[in-house]
Design a binder for these strands. Structure first.
Lengths: 337, 337
DNA sequence: AACGCTACCGGAAACGTTTCCAAGGCCCGG
DNA sequence: CCGGGCCTTGGAAACGTTTCCGGTAGCGTT
C-alpha cells in the first residue's frame, strides 16, 4: 500500500522533480525525448501522480457534489450516469448524496459538500425544500451551482429543466382526446416549479378544449407510490372518482392503478391513467402505463456541462436555463378502446 | 470562493498554527480554555480545515470506492445507501462507479479508483467478470477490499453474501409444494458464486422431494429483463414450457411474465413464477411477483464495516465472510389456486 | 568575437495541514 | 530554594505536487 513518489522517479532517472512533473503535465517546456524517457520509466515503476498533492497545489478538489432527493427510482440514477459521463472524462470525481426527500438532510448534505471543498454542486430539490436561504448563501458566495429537474424560480442560478408545461398540456390533451371530460390531476408539492408547470399544463389543456376546470380537480400530494394510493382511496371514499387521472409522476400513477384495481375498477376501461417520466417499470405493470418520456441521461450531461463552465471560468458566469424536450409514450393505461 | 486557512485563524488569535490544529484534532495536548477560544473564533471566521491538506499529511484519501454492475434496479442503490450510512459517519467519502455489466469497464473503474488512492474498494462483480487477475493483484498488494453479492470463490478476500443456496432451495420447494413437478431455472452466468448457489438450491430441492432434475431444466442467461424474455421465447418456440419458473432475479422473472402474457399464457394459472431479490416493483406488476427478500441495505452496512476494519487495522486482516439471511415473500405469481 | 535569444532544465517556494521536538512556565517535593 | 517533571505552547519538518524564476548551453547574427 506504499505508493511511489515523483522523487523516487526523479532519482531513478537522475533528473530533477520538475522535469518529471513537466513530463506528466505536458506543458511542453521539456524535450520530447526526455519526456518520453520519463514517461517510460515512470510507467515501469508504476508511478501515478498523487492526486491529493496535486489538488493541494492547484487549489482545486476536482470533486463535484450531486445531491438528489432519492435514488431508488431509476430517474435520478440515470441523470447521475449522465453527469458522470461528462465529469469523469474531465478528471472530476462525483460525490453523490441523497436527501431522502428530507429538508434537513438536504441542507446537511450541502454543508458536508461545502466543507469538503467540492468545486461545484449539482442539485435537485427535495419535495419539502424550503431552505432556499442556504442555497442563496452559496449563490452569493459565487459557488458553482446547477439545479435540475426540481427547482425553485426564486433562485437565479443555472438550471436544467424539462419542458413540463408543454408535455403536461400534451398529456392532458391526449386524455381529453380519448373522450374524457372529468379529469383529476394528482399534483406534486406546489413550491416546486415542476409541480406548478405540470399543473398549469393540465389547466390550460382544459381551457384550450373549453372544458371546465377548477381547484377541486387538482389534488396536491407527494411523489411516492403511497401518495397515489392515498389520494385515490380518498376519492373512492368520497365517491368522487373522475374518468381519468393525470399524475405528476409514474410512482403516483402506479399507486393510483394499484388502488383502483384493488377496489375493482378497470384501467383504462373504467378510468384512464397517465403518468410522467417514463421509468422502465412503466411498461412492466398491468396495464402498461402511458407516460411522458424525459431525457434523463441528457439532463445530467447538460447539468454537468453547465457546471463545468462555471468552475472553469475565471469571471462570473451568467446563469443559464436549458429546457429539454421529451415525447409522449402512449401505452394501454390511457387508451379508451 | 476563497477559503480561510489555519494560518489566518492563528493570526487572529495571536497563537501558533499548531495550537489551532490541536484544537481541531482533540488530541488533548491543549488547555481546554484555549481550545474553546480557538474553536469559537474559528467558527466565527467560518474556518474549516482543508480536507485535502489534511489528507496529504495523513497519507490517506478518506475516499472509498464502490463498484457495482449497474444501478438502475433498486438493489444496488439500496446497498450503496447502506454503505454510505456507515462510511459518511466516519468521515469517508464514497466514490460510486458502475460497470454496465461490462468486464472492461469494471477493470477501468478499479484502475481509476486505485490511481485516485482510495483507501479501499467495495465491489460487486459484473456478470461477465473474468478479470480475476486484477483483483488478485489488489489482494496481493494488501489493498483493503470487500466483495458483496456477486463474488467468485477463487478469491480469498472478505465477502458479504446472501444465503443464496438456502433461499433458492426454499423458493423452489415452495413451487414444488404448489404441486408443480416440471420446473425450469432461469440461471445467471455460472462463474458467479451466486448463480452456482441458486442453481444448487434449485437442484437439491428436487432431490429432497425425489423429483427428477437434469441440466435441461437449467438455462443459463443474464440478469436483465430481456434475458428473461429471450429464454421464455425460446422455450415457447420449442414447445417445451414447464409448469413453473424459478428465476435468478426479479428482472428475468418480469421478463418471463411479460413474454408469457404476450403469448396468451396466464400467470400463475398456466405457469407459476418465482423471482429473487424482491425489488419494490415486484408488488406493482401483474400478477404481483413472489420473490426472495434480500436485506440489501444491511448488506451495504456490513460490507462497509468489513472494509473499515481492514483500512484501520495496521496489520493484515484475515478475510472474513458474512452470510446474511432473508425471507420468502409469496405473492400471486407463484400460487396455484 | 561578442552578444542575445531560445530551448531546456534545476532549485526552491508554495499549497494547508499534522506532528515531532524543543522550550518555557509552573508546581511540588526534597 | 532548587531541581525535576508535567502541562502547554511554538517552531519547523514533512506530506507530494506544481510552478515561478533563474541558469546554462548552443546557436545564429552582426
Amino acid at each position: 500500500m506504499k505508493h511511489i513518489t515523483i522523487k523516487e522517479v526523479a532519482e531513478a532517472l537522475n533528473c530533477s522533480i520538475s522535469t518529471v512533473s513537466r513530463a506528466f503535465n505536458n506543458k511542453s517546456e521539456i524535450h520530447p525525448d526526455t519526456r518520453e524517457r520519463v514517461l517510460q520509466v515512470a510507467a515501469k515503476m508504476g508511478y501515478h501522480p498523487n492526486p491529493i498533492a496535486r489538488k493541494l497545489t492547484q487549489q482545486r478538489s476536482y470533486n463535484v457534489g450531486v445531491v438528489v432527493p432519492e435514488f431508488l427510482n431509476p430517474f435520478f440514477p440515470e441523470v447521475i450516469m449522465g453527469i458522470q459521463d461528462v465529469l469523469l472524462e474531465k478528471g472530476y470525481q462525483v460525490l453523490i448524496m441523497q436527501s431522502n426527500e428530507n429538508d434537513e438532510t438536504e441542507q446537511k448534505n450541502l454543508k458536508t459538500l461545502e466543507d469538503n471543498f467540492v468545486d461545484g454542486i449539482i442539485l435537485s430539490l427535495t419535495q419539502e425544500s424550503k431552505n432556499i436561504n442556504y442555497l442563496q448563501h452559496l449563490i452569493n458566495k459565487n459557488y458553482p451551482l446547477v439545479l435540475f429537474n426540481r427547482t425553485n424560480e426564486s433562485l437565479t442560478v443555472s438550471k436544467v429543466l424539462f419542458d413540463d408545461y408543454k408535455w403536461a398540456l400534451f398529456a392532458t390533451e391526449h386524455l381529453i382526446q380519448q373522450g374524457l371530460k372529468e379529469l383529476v390531476h394528482i399534483a406534486g408539492k406546489s413550491h416546486l416549479t415542476l409541480s406548478k408547470k405540470r399543473k398549469q399544463g393540465f389547466i390550460d389543456a382544459h381551457r384550450k378544449h373549453k372544458l371546465p376546470v377548477d381547484s377541486s380537480k387538482i389534488i396536491e400530494t407527494g411523489f411516492l407510490v403511497e401518495d397515489g394510493i392515498r389520494t385515490v382511496m380518498e376519492l373512492i371514499d368520497n365517491d368522487t372518482l373522475p374518468e381519468g387521472f393525470f399524475c405528476v409522476n409514474d410512482a403516483t400513477a402506479m399507486g393510483a392503478i394499484k388502488a383502483l384495481k384493488k377496489n375493482g375498477y378497470k384501467v383504462p376501461q373504467d378510468i384512464a391513467i397517465m403518468g410522467f417520466t417514463d421509468t422502465p417499470v412503466s411498461s412492466m405493470i398491468e396495464p402498461p402505463l402511458s407516460s411522458v418520456v424525459q431525457p434523463s441521461r441528457q439532463m445530467g450531461e447538460v447539468a454537468a456541462e453547465l457546471l463545468l463552465r462555471q468552475i472553469e471560468s475565471k469571471s462570473i458566469v451568467i446563469p443559464e436555463t436549458v429546457v429539454l424536450s421529451g415525447s409522449l409514450k402512449v401505452r394501454e393505461s390511457s387508451v379508451k378502446l
